[in-house]
Every structure is written in structure tokens, then in C-alpha cells.
């Protein structure tokens, strides 16, 4: 249930509000106004795919899509995300099945400890949606906001190239 109380002409989102995540409307109750979208997804809505590490927009492990833009969910005030379309890593594949990006991360060895992986997966989906055949420089720049401390990035870049090639061959 979405709470919009018109106050002097403007709408208002209170401690109770609703968020549309992966196509489903979730009610958020008794929340604190300062809660980030990352916190609400993980702690209130049972969607722990987005990870919290730096909480200041540097690591990208909390990347989600809000209204078709890849953003750091730790820097989105959840109560301000009412009326948006939120897509998390949980919503990328149908019914929990792996997406082609996730499969390529596995086959190319782009995953070690796995902590950064959901953020990368979301960022790569967003990249390939907007630029199906990115150059290496474009891949690097578009993933520059996602930090991995294990892989050294080589296998992640290989996974992106693999998916881009597969999609070109299948199109």
C-alpha cells in the first residue's frame, strides 16, 4: 500500500510506503526515513542479492537498476524510490534460472569469493542492454564503478566478451 498524503499540493512518502521491485509491489512498514534502498531490499524485503560493503558508492556491489539506470542502492533513499521501477539481481533471470551473463561468469571463472558478483552481473546486464557490442575500453569504463579484489578483472572482462559474442551469434 502506497501512502501519498497530499501536503500543500505535493505528495509525501512516509515511514510506510511501497516499492515496486522486480515487478512486484512490496509494502515497507515502520521504516526509518534514512534507510537506504540497499538496507530495505536486504533487511526488509528479503532480497539479499545486492551486497553492502562501502556504503558510499565506491564499490558497486549494491548495484541495482532504478528506472533503467544502474545506480548504487546504498545511495538511494528508499522512501524516495516510491513510484520507480526497481530491478535487482534476483529479478534478472526467469524464476531463479541463470541468465546468460551469470552462466558466462561461471564458465569463464569470473567469480572467486563472489561478494562483488551480483553488482557486476547487474552492471553487465545494464551495459549490454545499452551497448550490445562494447569495445574493451567501453567494458572497462562501464565496470569502473564495480570493485573486485579477487579476480584481477581479466576473467570478468572475458565473461562480458563471451556474452556479447553469444548474443550476436543468436541474433
Amino acid at each position: 500500500m502506497s501512502i501519498y498524503i497530499p501536503v500543500s499540493g505535493a505528495a509525501q512518502s512516509h515511514e510506510m510506503y511501497s516499492l515496486r521491485v522486480n515487478g512486484l509491489v512490496h509494502e515497507v512498514k515502520d521504516a526509518w526515513i534514512g534507510e537506504s534502498l540497499l538496507y530495505v531490499l536486504r533487511e526488509r524485503l528479503g532480497l539479499p542479492g545486492a551486497k553492502g560493503a562501502c556504503e558510499q558508492g565506491e564499490c558497486g556491489s549494491c548495484t541495482v537498476i532504478v528506472d533503467s539506470k544502474a545506480v548504487c542502492s546504498c545511495l538511494v533513499m528508499a522512501a524516495d524510490a516510491v513510484d520507480t521501477e526497481i530491478l535487482t539481481v534476483e529479478g534478472l533471470g526467469p524464476d531463479g534460472a541463470l541468465t546468460d551473463v551469470q552462466s558466462a561468469f561461471l564458465s569463464e571463472g569470473g567469480v572467486q569469493c563472489g561478494f562483488c558478483t551480483p553488482g557486476f552481473i547487474v552492471a553487465v546486464h545494464h551495459l549490454l542492454e545499452n551497448n550490445p557490442q562494447p569495445s574493451d575500453d567501453e567494458i572497462r569504463e562501464s565496470l569502473s564503478g564495480n570493485i573486485c579484489r579477487c579476480t584481477g578483472y581479466g576473467r570478468i572482462l572475458e565473461a562480458v566478451r563471451t556474452v556479447a559474442d553469444q548474443r550476436r551469434q543468436n541474433s
Partner: peptide, 12 residues
């Protein structure tokens, strides 16, 4: 402690 959400400059 609300988030006020104006839709245009006049409301803002």
C-alpha cells in the same frame, strides 16, 4: 519525518 515529493517548481 516524511519525504516530500513536489512534482513541479511551483509545488517545490
Amino acid at each position: 519525518m516524511p519525504v516530500l515529493i513536489p512534482r513541479n517548481v511551483d509545488e517545490l
